[in-house]
Design a protein around this nucleic acid. Structure first.
Lengths: 369, 369
DNA sequence: CTGTTAGCGCATTCAT
DNA sequence: ATGAATGCGCTAACAG
């Protein structure tokens, strides 16, 4: 941890016996430099272990080679996977990713934007509220490009990468209807999120098409395990108990599975279940859980690529205006992963039968320890 | 996306009718400035919406208010949770976190270090290889503080925040032994990682203490679901099949559960199971899975705090040397979460009975859809 | 092709 | 208590 002074452009120039401009040209591609001096300078750079000082570059108006990522949480597997994909794209463009967390708190979110917009070349954000005018105002007024993902911002100027929440929720619901279930409960939380609204709309549309009454139970916040259990208990003991449950998000699905199991209700014989968002053990649980699977990595990748596209367009002053008007949202397709909880017969992801006996020998003895 | 020029210190100075030095003093705490001018300058800052240019500050030798985080993967729930905790601490110190990913590839790791060491005030890293001399050399020669977490670096000069892998693996194994199981299989992957070595040592120690022979099956890489199934099948059909399995990591535990289920083996009646690392559905699976639970957030928090401590010490030139010698590793305690897969009776986390009947009404009819 | 020079925005002596 | 001047390392005019 010594206070070693890093070699500067000037040091390299002196060492190579040239001017600073030449060195600058070399580290920026080396065009308009004679092969001979190019070689000289390169050697000098190597020998001194010179690394350009980014702060000086940024001060000169260059890019910081950093993009900001603003998400509700990193610990959430969905956003973590997005982040990983984003990081990968950024790396391929020579950029770093700084991550900040909002917990869906608009104040924190605004603070993050404030911190980031002077330090990053662009922003990737999953906005807490698609309609918040303050947020929209701030984001549109930013001098760096912004791309939303997972959740849109209701403003023409800001592009977003989304999945087809409406259609896939409709597909999921229709699948349950095709099983013959008439009363299907739609369960979830965080009602205000755009994604949730869309999914509910999809559910409603499917039910309407089938002439079935809807039952929707969504709390404002993200319901805890206990809350889900209570909600379920209320519905199951009512006069028209649901024959199937469509869960609007990952955690809800898990809590529902958990509660039904505790209630001693058989899935899918007594209550069928379809969830939104795939999860690690969805195929391992018994019964395995049928879910809508979003292309998580693809969301992050697309969003990041879009951002770097706009960044390039910005550098290219001419195409800037064109990029501006291109603020179309990208919609990615989700898939229904049919497993057993919906009532389809049990099978593995690989198509193997569930009970796969050991070959070549008896099972381990259970009598002796 | 207009090319609006941000107001500078000079703009504020002119607007407030003072010199740049005064403004600088104000934004840096405002000491040695008369209350009157302080107020004036503050108003000018507000009116112009002045935000200090970080690049200029960094160029002046100030801190970049950024720390680098180098992890094998962000998508991994363990590191994601660490990252979240780290981010939180960093925020409390006014710093941002830039995240890079190594996939345990030493080359990528070195590249990340190279990119980060000029842009960050300090580094938090989960090193891919605790013994890699090249890595150690680079890291000790760095001019910024470095703190390892989850995995140590075998060098006195670099502190690490770790958990007690050895002891908790020993505890887990002993728990299985106390159930009376004699043949306990130790299953896992990524044998070269320090964490794995420690856990194996713990397993071995417990078995040795009990005078039981050890059976260890660990592949060099992270075994896939199929590989785990094959490994298990081999052992279960052997002449001395294991009565219990101790899984060295999260994914292995899940794959083992999955395979045993497919084999039609009852847990824990035929084969008991204890895993390392808790996971979201460990309590929800049937049987619920007994695991060693690491204090994930605490690891991240402690590591980040340690880093900022060293950062502060560095600023404080005097205490620098003292901090250097303090490079002691921090060891955090893990806990054995007893659930059902080990053979202890089934119960919930909250102590509720497993089968919790619905109150106030009959169960939903199953005859009618 | 190559070198000289002038800032980018800020913190910091050193005066006053 | 305050301000003028200097330089952090780099890029880009603008000469040669």
């Amino acid at each position: 941890m010594k206070r070693e002074r890093h070699p500067t452009l000037f040091d390299v120039a002196r060492h190579a016996g040239v001017g600073t401009t030449t060195v600058s040209r070399v580290i920026n591609g080396g065009s308009r430099v004679s092969p001979k001096t190019l070689e000289q300078v390169r050697r000098a750079i190597d020998e001194l272990g010179f690394v350009p000082n980014l702060a000086a570059r940024v001060l000169k108006g260059e890019q910081s080679k950093t993009i900001g990522l603003i998400v509700p949480s990193i610990a959430d597997s969905f956003f973590a996977s997005c982040a990983e994909a984003i990081q990968k794209v950024a790396r391929s463009f020579g950029s770093l990713v700084v991550v900040t967390v909002t917990h869906n708190d608009p104040a924190l979110e605004m603070e993050n934007i404030q911190t980031l917009f002077r330090r990053a070349d662009g922003l990737l954000i999953a906005p807490s509220d698609s309609n918040n005018p303050k947020l929209i105002g701030r984001l549109t007024r930013l001098s760096i490009p912004v791309v939303c993902f997972d959740r849109p911002l209701h403003d023409e100027r800001i592009p977003a990468v989304l999945t087809d929440n409406y259609h896939s929720a409709k597909t999921a619901t229709r699948h349950l209807l095709q099983h013959g279930y008439k009363r299907i409960l739609c369960l979830g939380g965080e009602a205000a999120f755009h994604t949730m609204e869309e999914r509910v709309r999809g559910y409603e549309a499917a039910m309407r098409d089938a002439n079935r009454p809807t039952t929707i139970d969504i709390s404002a916040h993200d319901p805890s395990s206990e809350e889900i259990a209570a909600m379920l208990a209320r519905h199951l003991t009512g006069k028209a108990p649901p024959r199937a449950v469509f869960c609007l998000k990952n955690a809800t699905t898990i809590h529902t599975y958990d509660a039904l199991q505790r209630f001693g209700m058989h899935i899918p014989q007594q209550v069928a279940l379809v969830g939104y968002d795939d999860f690690l053990l969805a195929a391992t649980l018994r019964p395995s859980i049928t879910v809508i699977q979003q292309p998580v990595e693809e969301i992050g990748r697309k969003a990041a690529k879009l951002l770097f596209e706009r960044l390039a367009a910005k550098a290219d002053h001419s195409s800037l205006l064109r990029a501006e008007s291109h603020a179309k949202n990208v919609r990615l397709k989700s898939r229904l992963i049919v497993r057993a909880s919906c009532g389809c017969r049990e099978f593995n992801v690989d198509g193997l039968p569930v009970s796969q006996k050991l070959q070549g020998g008896a099972l381990a003895a259970t009598t002796e320890m």
